[in-house]
Write a protein that binds this DNA or RNA. Structure first.
Length: 425
DNA sequence: TCTGGGGTCCTAGGACCC
DNA sequence: TCTGGGGTCCTAGGACCC
């Protein structure tokens, strides 16, 4: 049987989410900003047309925002996550086999759909998603995932395709590959693009003409898989079930530079609690923790310092109290006074299923109690909102928190309420 | 003044063992 | 003091993704 994949991609996803709830912004330039309102991470077509680049620092366009020529939003991941679920649920109606690849993209297995009128089916998918969720999507269909990516990109670019492109016959596939420059190929980043250009590879088509041995030598097995996919040989399967994460990280820049240890400690405690929550969500515990701290690399005037330390925990855990405790200890050991800090983060690795923990004979923590406390906290927060209950060292001042001055309401989910502080001792 | 955050996979090289 | 080779495990770093 021949394989066939559709790549469904939400157009300008974050910007589209904002527009669903403010339809007056349709046809207007809209951008969404990164944490701290630092730079542009999503743009509507109108914003792209104004020449605003991905990653452009916000201060470069602030004037245009202030006079109302561009509408800018702080990122609102609660809203985008919920909208993403709605889109994916809608897509699941169209095939039993779907891989949610990222917050705004899915691969659909259409292997059994060759006999269908594929173009018509794609249009039906596109219309239904738009009607049910308000989000515009584009579809690219082809015999491999890498080719479906190529098709999807052209579907968006081409005025004729209008968001749907089915690539099944060899002639059209070749034409599509010729029309795709090498840096636009999925899996070819800046370094590989440079290397390939140096060797005369300017398009995806040129790439398919390179020998397997050349590709393997310069781009290892990942590159080899990619070039085969572009030639139409399917090497990447549909991964329907997301495997549990092997590393979990929470880090953020502060709203302003911090020098005070207490504030940095509070931020770090909150990041540790966020990591713990992500662990519990996938029913895992972590055995190794890294904490890092850094000043602002971009500053030409500030004294620079950065450091990190990794520790192995006595017993793998997903408890807020325990992870906060260790994160605070590690932070203390790497914090040096006298610097203006920009960012800290907590990274957890050696992640194991929570029912497979190696206990330690010398362990004197009442783990059953921790588990039941965390279950209670999770229930309360899912019912009454994030931060309704927390560990005392997480504080409630939050002067370190990221700036998000232009955030839209969480239209589709419950709002947080006033926090109650839980004492962990 | 202002420049994101969270992941994955692969490889080379060193340490260590027999 | 010199003489090997092969295997495994771990880590750091590089490449990529959205």
């Amino acid at each position: 049987m021949t394989s066939l994949f559709a790549l469904v991609d939400c157009n300008n996803f974050y910007a589209s989410c904002e527009r669903v709830f403010q339809p007056s912004l349709n046809g207007q330039p809209v951008v969404v900003l990164s944490n701290n309102d630092g730079c542009v991470i999503a743009r509507s077509n109108e914003a792209k047309a104004l020449g605003i680049q991905m990653g452009a620092p916000y201060f470069e366009i602030r004037d245009l925002v202030e006079i109302g020529d561009i509408h800018a939003f702080s990122s609102n991941y609660t809203l985008y996550g919920d909208m993403s679920h709605r889109v994916m649920a809608t897509l699941s109606r169209f095939t039993p086999n779907i891989e949610v690849y990222s917050i705004d993209e899915s691969f659909l297995d259409l292997g059994n759909f060759y006999q269908k009128n594929l173009v018509e089916y794609c249009w039906e998918i596109k219309h239904t998603v738009h009607q049910w969720t308000g989000i515009p999507v584009s579809l690219g269909v082809a015999p491999t995932k890498a080719l479906a990516k190529v098709a999807n990109r052209l579907a968006k670019k081409s005025a004729k395709a209008k968001g749907v492109l089915v690539l099944t016959d060899p002639y059209h596939i070749t034409e599509a590959l010729k029309a795709t420059s090498i840096e636009d190929v999925w899996g070819v980043g800046r370094q590989y693009a440079k290397l390939l250009r140096k060797h005369g590879v300017n398009s995806a088509y040129d790439f398919t003409l390179k020998s397997d041995s050349w590709v393997k030598k310069h781009m290892a097995v990942v590159g080899l898989r990619l070039v085969k996919e572009l030639r139409g040989e399917s090497c990447l399967e549909l991964d329907e079930i997301a495997p549990p994460k092997k590393g979990i990280c929470t880090s953020r820049g502060f709203g302003e530079r911090l020098t005070d240890y207490g504030q940095i400690q509070e931020a770090t405690a909150n990041y540790a609690a966020k990591c713990a929550k992500k662990l519990r969500k996938q029913k895992s515990c972590a055995k190794v923790m890294t904490v890092f701290i850094q000043t602002n690399f971009f500053s030409g005037t500030d004294q620079q310092y950065s450091n990190s330390r990794t520790i192995t925990l006595p017993v793998a855990t997903n408890s807020d109290m325990e992870l906060i405790h260790y994160a605070s200890l590690v932070l203390k050991s790497i914090f040096k006074p006298g610097y203006r800090y920009k960012k800290t983060g907590v990274i957890l690795t050696e992640i194991v299923p929570q029912h497979q923990i190696q206990y330690d004979l010398l362990d004197n923590i009442n783990r059953e109690k921790h588990v039941s406390i965390m279950e209670t906290i999770d229930k309360l927060t899912s019912r009454y909102g994030r931060d309704i209950v927390k560990v005392a060292s997480q504080g409630y001042d939050h002067s370190w928190q990221v700036k998000c001055e232009r955030k839209s309401p969480c239209y589709t989910t419950r709002l947080s309420e006033i926090p109650t502080v839980y004492n962990a001792t």
